[in-house]
Design a protein around this nucleic acid. Sequence first.
DNA 1: CAATGCGTATTATATATATAATACGCTTTA
DNA 2: TAAAGCGTATTATATATATAATACGCATTG
Lengths: 124, 124
Amino acid sequence: MLRLNLDPASPVPAYQQIIQALKIEIISGRLKGGDRLPPIRELAKILKLNPNTVAKAYYTLEEDGFVESRPGSGNWVKSRAPDLDSLRVSMLEGETKSYLEKAFSLGASLDDVRRSIERIASHE
Amino acid sequence: MLRLNLDPASPVPAYQQIIQALKIEIISGRLKGGDRLPPIRELAKILKLNPNTVAKAYYTLEEDGFVESRPGSGNWVKSRAPDLDSLRVSMLEGETKSYLEKAFSLGASLDDVRRSIERIASHE
DNA sequence: CAATGCGTATTATATATATAATACGCTTTA
DNA sequence: TAAAGCGTATTATATATATAATACGCATTG
């Protein structure tokens, strides 16, 4: 079952959080080509958002080639989606880069980072 | 010289980016108690922002105990600032946690993460 | 075929963020 | 002491985000 966790306190707009979360679902393979997305009204109800907000997210995902909308019917993950493997690699790289930047700017050393990673990863 | 890099494309409001950046400067020790912050109008000019926006950031930093404002004179980093060491540790921990969450949700393994860290860190 | 589900579109309204243009009063400097 | 620098405050306006309330037309289902 699809599970999206949005953060209402975040300054990142809800519709962008939906886009980001669904892209990650698709890139990770948890959502596959041909899978159906929840109807706009239903997802809006679950996320306690206005249907317009969800529609905006779906529309953008379609523009980006991740989703196909069939008016009157529903929204579906595209089968011939963008090269997911290279997207996965480049997204991890981007996350790592910005994480290291923040860590170093806080005054942490590479060893501090290594220790922090192992420490957090060990109690999951 | 103080160097703040804001991202105008980010959905995070400019005044929050200033707050975050200055807290990091203080926590890392690059800004010390007694150091003077740039005058509001000057920083606004440098960042190409409205003085009101910078004032809002300074005001919040004062509320949070990082900065002391002397009307008519300027803004200064507080000498008895919040426990910077524990802040530094908890901020690194928070960054690590959210980084790992994103990495894992992308489908990366802990080894993928370790490799990515070493790879990015090596070409800096 | 009729009813329901669903994507799409429109109009109005509210809120947070940011800009713009000034003005006031205190502090520091010349 | 006069001028300049600086924090603070106010009012008006613009934009992006989100909600609210409907409505239209196509697809699927019974």
